[in-house]
Write a protein that binds this DNA or RNA. Structure first.
Length: 217
DNA sequence: CTACCGATTGACT
DNA sequence: GTCAATCGGTAGA
């Protein structure tokens, strides 16, 4: 029964393929907005639409975890694209998708999603919080989706537990904004945070350095 | 082994 | 808006 539901879920919402992730990190970041994150457990399914991301670039990006070379912590980022890079910070976890090609050391941080399915299960995992706070922030969404360090290195294109998909209905002309990345202390502010305008699940302050609309070709 | 620190959050003014 | 709790990763003795 459960297996059938999972198979049905995966055929209706097929995982994004490796070629989606094997592109320039900023392009992947922009295209991840509006995509859906699915999480299956025996307890049920949780899903959300990605509304906020940040790009961490392969070269000359002092804020990127790979900037000072390979370590046990960041080695997944040097592996094949389409894998989950889960790291811990301040006693919490954050989820990234590895991008570009093997050996580059770059990823997109998924900072916030808008809940679609399984809000009750998210509430159980998060405890008593306002529904708006369920998935607003990288560590909050990981808790709501039941993600921890054991998901580091998971293949997002082939996992039964966690995957990304295109939206069933293509959200017409998303209004995308950009700003400096949150919590990143770097001398030069590159605007590598991207988010959907006017979405209440986007984290961070309302105004940020360099904030403005993104023009897409 | 110890010391420092952060891609955060939640509580508080 | 401000601030401190929190703990794994990392560097260094």
């Amino acid at each position: 029964m459960r297996k059938l539901r999972l198979a049905e879920m995966r055929s209706q919402h097929p995982a994004l393929p490796t070629r989606f992730y094997s592109r320039a990190t900023v392009d992947v970041a922009l295209d991840l907005l509006g995509k859906h994150l699915f999480r299956w457990t025996p307890q049920g399914v949780t899903a959300g639409m990605i509304v906020e991301v940040e790009a961490y670039l392969p070269q000359r990006d002092p804020a990127c975890h790979t900037y000072r070379g390979k370590t046990p912590r960041n080695e997944v980022m040097f592996g094949p694209p389409g894998r989950a890079y889960v790291y811990s910070i301040h006693a919490r976890y954050c989820l990234n998708a590895v991008t570009e090609s093997r050996g580059q050391g770059c990823a997109v941080l998924i900072r916030a999603v808008e809940p679609i399915l399984g809000m009750e299960l998210m509430q159980m995992r998060r405890g008593q919080v306002k529904s708006r706070e369920l998935t607003r922030g990288p560590a909050r969404l990981c808790e709501a989706f039941g993600l921890g360090r054991c998901f580091n290195g998971l293949d997002l294109t082939g996992s039964q537990a966690l995957w990304l998909t295109r939206a069933k209905k293509c959200p017409k002309s998303l209004r995308i904004m950009r700003s400096a990345r949150i919590g990143v202390t770097e001398p030069r502010h590159r605007c590598l945070r991207f988010f959907l305008a006017d979405n209440e699940y986007v984290s961070g302050p309302r105004k940020m350095l360099g904030m403005g609309p993104v023009r897409r070709n």
